[in-house]
């Protein structure tokens, strides 16, 4: 099933991105090639030394939305701009994204040829014009394939992130595997395992009651319950490796592995540390209020997961995959 989910995420993502870009193109969301008239409030006129105008494009949100469609700007536009004139008399407008930039232009600037700086070609401003607010006719540079470009960037970024996460795990893995090895040699893990045998015998009937995988699983679940994610992952990975020693068919998940995973993804928790920390940072009057609700939520998830793993492992299609060797 993971094969289907995996390919669906990729294909669906690319199709939605292509569809969204096609819709932008058809509706011309970014007004590519269309001449727009804006109000340019001059701060500095060109001098014999510099041939550029400096100033601000000032529009109300309603005026901007009438150019680009509803929802393009949430507040009044105050976009700093520089209008430079080249030798042939053509003007180029350069707008650097900032706090006065409307939502749509900020989005466009991200995908501009020079990221963060939106460019436009404009009709020349009249140096003799009276007053400070001049009409400026300009065509903003074409913006295309925003989503497809984002998808490409995400694929490359996430591939790099995956390696960074894995490499980042080396230190904390080594630390906890070392501590666990000492606890194992000292017999502490055996004591913990024996104390919980009544529970583990029911959850993992395929695992011998004194197998080291049980100790790692117990430690992993305990760390998860306390919200100690850093400690939980190394112990969980150690547990999977030990479960794999009992695996008659390498490369295929065993029933015990799936049950263990169900407990893990259910995420049974006593102290949802991250959520509490975020609530406190957001200024909650009572960050810990979600402790009770999270225990109920994750409890239901864990029970449902364990029950589902016990039921689904009996389905012929999943049973066949582990029994094929014995035939």
């Amino acid at each position: 099933m993971l094969n289907y989910i995996w390919i669906s995420l990729i294909i669906l993502g690319i199709l939605v991105a292509a569809g969204s870009d096609a819709a932008d193109e058809l509706g011309n969301t970014y007004r590519n090639g269309i001449s727009l008239e804006v109000r340019f409030v001059v701060a500095k006129r060109p001098s014999p030394l510099r041939s550029a105008w400096e100033g601000t494009i000032v529009l109300s949100a309603a005026e901007f939305n009438s150019l680009y469609g509803p929802g393009s700007a949430d507040s009044a536009v105050n976009q700093p701009a520089m209008v430079s004139v080249d030798a042939s008399g053509r003007s180029t407008v350069t707008m650097t994204a900032g706090s006065g930039t409307p939502r749509l232009w900020a989005e466009m600037a991200k995908h501009a040829a020079d990221p963060g700086r939106l460019a436009a070609t404009a009709a020349p401003l009249n140096p003799e014009a009276e007053g400070n607010a001049l009409p400026l006719r300009m065509v903003v540079e074409p913006i295309r394939f925003v989503r497809l470009k984002a998808v490409t960037a995400a694929a490359l970024d996430y591939a790099a992130a995956a390696v960074n996460i894995s490499i980042g795990l080396i230190g904390v893995m080594a630390l906890w595997l070392g501590v666990m090895k000492v606890a194992g040699e000292a017999g502490l893990l055996g004591i913990i395992t024996r104390a919980l045998t009544p529970l583990t015998r029911r959850l993992f009937p395929d695992i011998p009651p004194d197998h080291p995988a049980l100790a790692s699983m117990i430690m992993n679940i305990a760390a998860n319950m306390l919200g100690l994610n850093n400690a939980a992952t190394p112990m969980g990975l150690k547990a999977m490796e030990e479960l794999n020693r009992l695996n008659p068919r390498l490369g295929t998940a065993t029933n015990a592995m799936v049950t263990f995973l169900a407990i893990n993804t259910g995420g049974l928790v006593l102290i949802p540390a991250t959520a509490i920390a975020v609530r406190a940072a957001a200024g909650s009057a009572n960050p810990g209020i979600i402790i009770g609700t999270s225990i109920i939520g994750s409890g239901c998830a864990t029970i449902a997961g364990v029950a589902a793993s016990r039921l689904l492992q009996r389905l012929p299609r999943y049973r066949r995959q582990v029994e094929a060797d014995h035939d």
């Binding site: 479960l243 295929t252 998940a253 799936v258 589902a308 492992q313 999943y318």
Partner: peptide, 23 residues
């Protein structure tokens, strides 16, 4: 987790995980 044990065929793990999430 499955990566650390070299598991490629995850059998019923995905539906189980999603059922747990939905619950």
């Amino acid at each position: 987790y499955f990566g650390s044990a070299g598991i490629r065929n995850t059998r019923h793990a995905v539906p189980v995980g999603l059922i747990a999430d939905a619950a």
